[in-house]
Nucleic acid binder design. Sequence first.
DNA 1: TTTATGGCTGTCA
DNA 2: ATGACAGCCATAA
Length: 111
Amino acid sequence: MPAAPSFKDKIYRLVARIPKGKIATYGQLARLAGGPTRAREVGYAMAALRPATRLPWHRVINSKGEVSRRRRPGAELTQRMMLVKEGLVFNARGRLSLERYQWSPRRSGRR
DNA sequence: TTTATGGCTGTCA
DNA sequence: ATGACAGCCATAA
């Protein structure tokens, strides 16, 4: 029997499911992983990814619909560029419409 | 141990 | 709209 996956692992699994052209917020992922108050850990989990990861980490943004600022400036521009490349459109204030782009996971094997 | 720092978020002024 | 604050909690030092 496999050990229960950690919160972090659940987050990674969820991120892997976000389809191209869609985004999810940190808080949303935290809720889906069963830790409604642990959004910050989601951000932490993203920050811990290796540069070579295949996870679509760039599809994770904050609740305001914008790319979060980080410690190392510049990387956020990369993220934004990747999203634009996938066809998402930022408005004049540098935000994405959550209405339009937020991912709604379909109930599948999870649970 | 304690303190500081985050890729966060909701509430309130 | 913006900004301060308080919860949140894993990591690092």
